[in-house]
Structure formats: structure tokens, C-alpha cells
């Protein structure tokens, strides 16, 4: 059962074809990897699927949180977020001057059921929403192991915890499909190990579909169930980790052609 279906996706920046004719199918509950050399267009695909960029051509069909199938190509990021897509960023983009728990609550803002007047007058519906946000946020923080630092400013967290907080914030939106852009970048082997356990745990807990970009091959091969390989904007291979490892085109893309 596919949750996300990308067909004929193209993106041109002027004369540059950043993404050309990409087809991706993501199954429900899958942990999918997207790899490729630098500049292959991985982050561009993430930006296209989350609405930061508008595709030149192509369709993106999403099965949203309620099970309805909708076209999300060309929608703005805040709309795709409402349909259950969330993401992290390659260069961490936390709200640095907000506390850890407030970072999560911002992800929940789209779920508020009170109006601004109720917020100003502190009416019951506002208090109920705030209480619910607090509980949910603390629960998610306890899963990623940041509950003790909930009052800390996000900018004061060490690097690895900032990465975790970004994942927690993406989950706090209540999304069903999560895009992780290089979650393990800059982490040492033991931190990477912890991170892959955490991703599996969160995926099972919240019934997520996870799509991740990563350069750490050991991490990708151990964690991902299926992998797409991207080079110069097109998909050059797709398959199980073992298949990808022995794929000739993939090796060529990373290491260059063999000299006869």
C-alpha cells in the first residue's frame, strides 16, 4: 500500500535540470533511504515533496492522515504539513531562542482549536489545548530522552541533541510521513548507532513512514528497508540494501567508471 506516489517529477532552475523524471513509490510504514553523491538532487526532491519548491512538472500523490488520496504538488509547506508531512533540515533549523518544549509546541500550533480571543482571555478551551500540548510534547521528549532539558533554550543543546530535537519537533506535528535530511551528519559512530535505534523506535510508536537522506552508508544499509539512488537528478537504482551495494551503476556513480 503506497502512502506517497511520485510520478514524472521534474524541477528546472533556469537551464539546470536539478531533478528529471523521478518516480518514487513509498509504502506505508516503510523506512526508505535516498542516497547519492553530493549535488545529486536529494535535498531538492525533499523540498519538492514538502512544498518548499514547486515542481516544474510531475505529480505527488499523498495518502493523508485521514486516508484520503490527494495531489500535493505545488502546495505550500504549511499546507502539506496540514496533510501530514513533516521534515528535518540538513543544516539544523531549530527555533533557537525558544525552549525545547516550546519548539515541539510550535509543531502543534496547526492543531489548535481555540481562537486568538480565547487565548488572550485565557478561556477554558485555550487552557485545555495548552495542557494537551504540554502532555504530548513531554511524552515525545521522554521518548527521545530530552525530558530533563525541556526548559533549556534550543540553542544551548549539544549538537547531537539538537538533531534529536528536530526529529521530535517533526513528529510533534502529528505527521504520518517524515522526511529526515541527513539525520546522522556530524555524529560519531556510537551516536549514529543510538540514532538508528531511536528512529526505529519512533517509527513503530507513531506508525510513521520515514524517508531519509544520508551519506553514512553503514547507517543507511543497516536501517533502511529499501533504497533509491540518485545521480545528476535521476534515479539510477532502486532496491534492497544488498542489491544496491552490488549495483554496478551505483558504484560507478560514487567511484567513477572502471578503466579498461
Amino acid at each position: 500500500m503506497s502512502v506517497l506516489k511520485v510520478r514524472g517529477l521534474n524541477k528546472n532552475f533556469g537551464g539546470l535540470k536539478a531533478v528529471s523524471d523521478v518516480n518514487i513509490t513509498v509504502n506505508q510504514g516503510e523506512l526508505l533511504g535516498l542516497i547519492g553523491p553530493n549535488g545529486a538532487g536529494k535535498t531538492t526532491i525533499f523540498n519538492l515533496l514538502t512544498g518548499v519548491y514547486v515542481p516544474t512538472t510531475g505529480t505527488v500523490r499523498l495518502k493523508d492522515v485521514d486516508g484520503n488520496k490527494i495531489n500535493i504538488n505545488g502546495m505550500k509547506p504549511h499546507i502539506t504539513a496540514r496533510h501530514g508531512i513533516s521534515r528535518t533540515f540538513q543544516n539544523i533549523r531549530l527555533f533557537k531562542n525558544l525552549s525545547v518544549v516550546d519548539n515541539l509546541k510550535i509543531g502543534m500550533h496547526k492543531n489548535i482549536r481555540h481562537s486568538i480571543f480565547e487565548a488572550i482571555l485565557r478561556l477554558p478551551r485555550f487552557i485545555r489545548d495548552e495542557k494537551m500540548f504540554e502532555q504530548q510534547a513531554m511524552y515525545i521528549l521522554s521518548l527521545v530522552g530530552l525530558q530533563d532539558k525541556h526548559a533549556e533554550f534550543a540553542m544551548n543543546l549539544p549538537y547531537g541533541e539538537q538533531r534529536k530535537l528536530e526529529i521530535a519537533r517533526a513528529i510533534a506535528t502529528g505527521a504520518s510521513v517524515i522526511f529526515l535530511d541527513e539525520p546522522a551528519a556530524g555524529m560519531n559512530p556510537s551516536e549514529t548507532e543510538d540514532l538508528s535505534k531511536l528512529i526505529v523506535k519512533l517509527k513503530d510508536e507513531f506508525h510513521l513512514t520515514v524517508i531519509l537522506i544520508e551519506h553514512d552508508m553503514k547507517f543507511v544499509m543497516n536501517l533502511c528497508e529499501r533504497i533509491y539512488v540518485l545521480d545528476f537528478g535521476s534515479i539510477i537504482a532502486e532496491g534492497l540494501p544488498a542489491e544496491i551495494q552490488s549495483n554496478k551503476r551505483v558504484i560507478e556513480a560514487y567511484l567513477g567508471e572502471q578503466v579498461e
Binding site: 533549523r93 525558544l98 510550535i106 500550533h109 481555540h114 489545548d129
Partner: peptide
């Protein structure tokens, strides 16, 4: 309130705020 946090989020990082809905 949630609106105030959203305002701060817009100040801190527009792209991230928009991606959070």
C-alpha cells in the same frame, strides 16, 4: 500562547516555521 510562539517561530526561522504548518 500558541499564537505568540508561532510569532516567535516566524521571527526565528520562516522556512522551519512554514514546514511545521
Amino acid at each position: 500562547s500558541s499564537f505568540g510562539r508561532a510569532c516567535i517561530a516566524v521571527r526565528e526561522d520562516e522556512i522551519a516555521a512554514e514546514s511545521m504548518g
